[in-house]
Design a protein around this nucleic acid. Structure first.
Lengths: 197, 197
DNA sequence: TCATATTGTGTACAGTGTTAAGATACGCTA
DNA sequence: TAGCGTATCTTAACACTGTACACAATATGA
């Protein structure tokens, strides 16, 4: 989209990611076809293969971008909220909010047909790393089993992820538009989950 | 598959569902194509349109079958476990176990590109109905807000659903094969979730 | 300046979901 | 039992899709 008159695009890779994002927003996942992406970037359907191995690779890269953004928001939460338990509640809100704000992108991160943009669930994993850190802070000073701490972090992730998934494509979809009820649901969920050792 | 030599199949509708299930098992969701299903049922690609409006309708019907089976297992749990809190823990185990046992089918139920097999989240909703009943039993005698009870049930569903989703297609996929660790994770999750009023 | 690597185009192929027109067999009524 | 309407299936076609390949244009570096 930068300099259409030239033979070489300049930075097609990013242009493709932008085009994919654009398609994703106003057409959803079903509209996200390789050729449509190339079309929007003003390029022939063969060109993208010089920048991405295949469709899955492009989509994985896009998912990673969103994952990085979500990770950024997570870290922001940690700076604006002092107390660990408050941080945890805020993280839940941010997670669900992001899912509802970027539904198609959020779904993309958990599609089985492409390589998972997360690695595993370690301290270096984008979003999970922050979560694990906060959970550790909540349980600081306790003589608890470290494996249990990890399980608790996974459970916390599962909790908010499940809410997001059910709100997006599950039976709770009807609630998704009512911001206040969503907020209440997330609050109930996190408040009732006991993190402490 | 019943009487292949005849022009009319007999009960093609169920044969198509069976074929779809078969494809789903040994090929995953990606292999689940309309034509492949017809092929396995020994019929031309146009024939299924007399039984299902389109691909999404077929897949929705298949998802509903699995949902009914899961609902059945849920009700079974309620009869074999007397105490509500025990029931709740057992339901969580059964939910996650079903997801890991039938991964492709489980994913099918939450695909955005087809009509959700659940209606909303009411007492009549297949799986949620049982869950709601058990949560109510846990909170019996309390003077709690009914809306809060509903939120708690939603949160409980979110908790186990999130675990299942992360184990299937998320960063917890590496754990999925280790039955004992999965069991411990689910136990930690449900035990730490406070249902009571 | 010229060979080479990079990044485009164009065409082709197999496979997809869906539709429409025509062939066949079943079930009901007379 | 004969005939007819209708439900069911086949065949062929359409507009797509993702990917592969040969080729062309540009950029780069010795």
């Amino acid at each position: 989209m930068e300099r259409p008159e030239r033979y070489h695009h300049g930075n097609l890779r990013q242009a493709l990611l932008d085009a994919a994002e654009e398609v994703l927003i106003d057409g959803g996942i079903e509209a996200l076809s390789w050729r449509e992406i190339a079309r929007r970037a003003g390029v022939s359907p063969g060109a993208p293969y010089h920048h991405f191995a295949d469709k899955a690779a492009l989509l994985t890269a896009l998912a990673q971008q969103h994952l990085a953004e979500l990770d950024h928001r997570f870290r922001e939460v940690c700076t604006t909220h002092p107390e660990p338990h408050e941080q945890l509640r805020a993280l839940g809100m941010v997670y669900v909010a992001y899912a509802l704000e970027h539904p198609a992108a959020f779904r993309l991160m958990f599609r089985p047909e492409m390589g998972s943009p997360f690695g595993g669930a370690s301290a270096e994993t984008p979003v999970f790393g922050v979560l694990l850190q906060v959970v550790r802070a909540c349980r600081a000073g306790a003589t608890g089993d470290p494996a249990e701490t990890e399980r608790v972090a996974c459970a916390a992730w599962g909790l908010v992820h499940g809410l997001a998934a059910l709100l997006l494509d599950g039976p709770l979809a009807a609630l998704a538009t009512d911001r206040e009820r969503v907020r209440a649901l997330v609050a109930t969920s996190t408040d009732r989950f006991n993190v402490d050792a």
